[in-house]
């Protein structure tokens, strides 16, 4: 394969991967953030202590986390078809990707929010703050560096999942690697795919770490 043959395939593959990862990240954050906060609030001693809710949500999250992604992907085909109309293509892949990542991200959110000093919550309670106020003005802002770090990890996990999704009907670099690298043994093509993936992951990690550093420096500037 020549470079000019590879180039449009790789460009398309990268764009599809980015498309899947970006949208599934957005859905994951939208779904995982409230779940993670709910896990903290309903926990024993939490502001909304509710053991049944906590147990149910915790169990669902644990089931989601323990299923291998490839199995989940296949198991979700009927659901994906219901939501998107098809189970093939990058848009359809957003569904299993997000569902696979939400439990993972929810646990990261839970850990991040749990680390917020209980004294701050108490201070805002003493000012007459309601639970939504405490979540919006204390828990989330104070946990922001850890949350950003969690999003970074989640995006990287999603890049990995999206490659698997590529093997089962999705598009993107994974599907290109299966078609050209696995079925045709195009070594150069495989090599470039690997380089692109490594670069993608590195860029995400760098951006994430940079943002965290910025946030932390803002809060704890050298005295």
């Amino acid at each position: 394969m020549t470079w000019s043959e590879m180039q449009p395939l790789l460009t398309q593959g990268t764009l599809d991967t980015l498309y899947m990862v970006l949208w599934s990240t957005l859905v994951t954050v939208a779904g995982g953030l409230p779940l993670g906060v709910l896990l903290v609030l309903t926990d024993k001693g939490g502001l909304l202590q509710n053991t049944p809710v906590n147990k149910v949500v915790g169990t669902v999250v644990n089931i989601g986390r323990s299923l291998p992604f490839l199995i989940l992907l296949i198991a979700l085909i009927p659901f994906t078809t219901l939501v998107v109309g098809t189970f093939i293509g990058p848009t359809a892949m957003i569904v299993p990707l997000a569902i696979g990542a939400i439990p993972f991200f929810a646990r990261l959110v839970e850990t991040a929010v749990r680390e917020v000093d209980a004294g701050l919550v108490e201070a805002v309670q003493s000012m007459g703050g309601s639970i939504p106020v405490i979540v919006r003005k204390v828990l989330l802002p104070q946990a922001l560096p850890s949350l950003v770090s969690g999003v970074t990890t989640t995006v990287i996990v999603l890049i990995g999942y999206s490659a698997m999704a590529g093997a089962v009907g999705g598009e993107g670099l994974g599907s290109k690697a299966v078609t050209y690298g696995f079925q045709r043994f195009e070594t150069e093509f495989m090599l470039v795919t690997v380089v692109i993936l490594v670069a993608l992951v590195s860029i995400v990690q760098l951006l994430g770490d940079g943002t965290v550093r910025l946030l932390v420096r803002r809060g704890r500037a050298a005295a």
Partner: peptide, 13 residues
């Protein structure tokens, strides 16, 4: 009712 705390409890963010 205002309240002040031993460990200040200010939001670092």
């Amino acid at each position: 009712i205002g309240m002040v705390f031993q460990h200040f409890n200010l939001l670092s963010s």
